[in-house]
Design a protein around this nucleic acid. Structure first.
Lengths: 192, 192
DNA sequence: GACTTAACGGAACGAATGTTCCAGAATAGA
DNA sequence: TCTATTCTGGAACATTCGTTCCGTTAAGTC
């Protein structure tokens, strides 16, 4: 063995996430990356490969982190409504923080899904994962009598997922955190 | 005067809309445009100016056409619920038709809003216009006893707008028309 | 001290892109 | 027929971008 890397790969990925989230894939040049990450061009290539590979790694990390957080929230026992409120508020907060950059996954779905098969596959899988997480938790809530038994957990899960997509776009383009929170609150009324 | 233009400017703009809607602004090169529109490069420049100007003209046309259609739907007298159902179905249908390209305005909001002040301004104005149209119609429905008086028309309008954003993104990235229609149906339950 | 690996930065390349210039051909009206 | 305007296509330009090559320096291990 020999010299160790001078930068923390995870930390660099986190900053990469923020850059791509703010400006999108195409508008973020490799120069932008090296400048912001303070890693030399060649080191970036050596460590992560080309721009697309780096982007996919960042997107994967972003997705995994998000799924884990949401899973943790939904794993909390007790009534669902406060959990879902927390989930929506977290999503809004994340999308609005540090300059309304929205959600990297949502942004990438819009920007890259037609061209890039990798991103499309990740987006579809992510949608399915989120819907499954939500549907499972809603089913539990149904069994415990927390929500009415005549509702369809899968349809509700997809509906909440679609709502989250809309909030992410609105956060990026319009900001207005309060308005988004109101909409989230309204969306949750469907459980009543 | 002398020789007349060989192409219909409006028709060219319509095709431009479809191209930008399918691939986004950056991924649509001027070569793509001239090839698809069957108008020579120079004629395009002479008629519309540069790429950005052409894009803005297409986006304006798209927005105006959409607002007019929605206005026409909402101007229909009678109960609101079927009107809103029609509106949602129309949006889903448009976003899913011809290969799930979504909505040009939504796509542009995500792709261009951070960089381009023109697009940002148009997006904000469009959101306000849509919300106003919806809120006005909901207020009417409230006065006629069509929906409960304790609801906030503005909040509902924004909520519906956010839902439409989400459906457009899902249409582009995931397709699944039936799922989207189910979500639209669920979103409308808030009026009950 | 030798070897391996990483960081760094300059140079360059090939491709794509938006845009302009120009000259020739075509078409309409005076 | 003359003239004005448009269409068309080739050529070229400047710029940006992703990427590679290469030589030098630095750090950690045997």
């Amino acid at each position: 063995m020999s010299r160790q890397k001078e930068f923390d790969e995870a930390e660099v990925l986190d900053q990469t996430i923020e850059l791509f989230r703010a400006r999108g894939y195409q508008s973020t040049s490799f120069c932008d990356l090296t400048a912001a990450l303070k890693v030399s061009r060649q080191s970036l290539y050596d460590t992560y490969g080309d721009k697309q590979t780096l982007f996919l790694a960042a997107l994967k990390r972003y997705r995994d982190r998000g799924l884990q957080q949401i899973g943790a929230v939904l794993a909390t026992p007790g009534p669902v409504r406060p959990l879902l409120t927390q989930l929506f508020q977290g999503a809004i907060s994340s999308s609005c923080s540090e300059g309304n950059h929205g959600c990297l996954m949502v942004n990438s779905m819009v920007e890259m899904t037609p061209h890039d098969a990798n991103v499309r596959a990740m987006a579809i899988a992510h949608a399915r994962d989120l819907e499954n997480l939500l549907a499972a938790r809603l089913s539990v809530a149904q069994r415990t009598g927390d929500i009415a038994k005549d509702k369809n957990p899968t349809a509700l899960a997809r509906y909440f997922y679609h709502t989250l997509l809309g909030l992410a776009v609105a956060a990026r383009a319009l900001g207005e955190r309060d308005t988004l929170n109101t909409s989230a609150q309204l969306a949750l009324q469907i459980l009543d």
